[in-house]
């Protein structure tokens, strides 16, 4: 009887710890994802900018050489533009843990 209660308690503790770990993991991954997305957007702006007259300093030839290798990233930027994501809002929400 007492053993069963102890067993349930231990199971609950294990579940609690698992849930905590999963929570930490999700929160750290979403923070990493945010940093990744912002760096990716910055990188794409640096590469695409010189091709439309935005001076980023990157030589246009390097932009042209890289463009063909950035298919997935350009399509991601396109979907982001479609969705009209509020990047700055996302960032501030994350920083204030909302």
């Amino acid at each position: 009887m007492a053993g069963g209660a102890l067993r349930r308690l231990l199971d609950n503790i294990v579940s609690f710890i698992r849930a905590q770990v999963e929570g930490f993991r999700e929160s750290s991954v979403s923070a990493i994802k945010l940093e990744h997305n912002e760096l990716e957007a910055a990188f794409l702006n640096m590469i695409l900018g010189p091709l439309v007259g935005v001076v980023t300093g990157v030589p246009p030839i390097i932009s042209l050489e890289l463009l063909a290798e950035l298919g997935d990233e350009v399509r991601y930027l396109e979907s982001r533009a479609f969705r009209g994501e509020d990047v700055i809002g996302d960032l501030f929400s994350t920083l204030s843990s909302e």
Binding site: L48, L51, V52, P59, P60, I61, L64, L67, A68, G71, V74, R75, L77, E78, A81, F82
Partner: peptide, 27 residues
């Protein structure tokens, strides 16, 4: 090399890239 990216570039207002390529500085 970037022809298949053209639809995405159009959405991003970058479809002029194809024309620009012919006169891009450094070519």
């Amino acid at each position: 090399h970037v022809r298949d990216l053209l639809p995405s570039l159009k959405v991003l207002n970058l479809d002029d890239v194809i024309d620009i390529m012919k006169s891009v500085p450094g070519l």
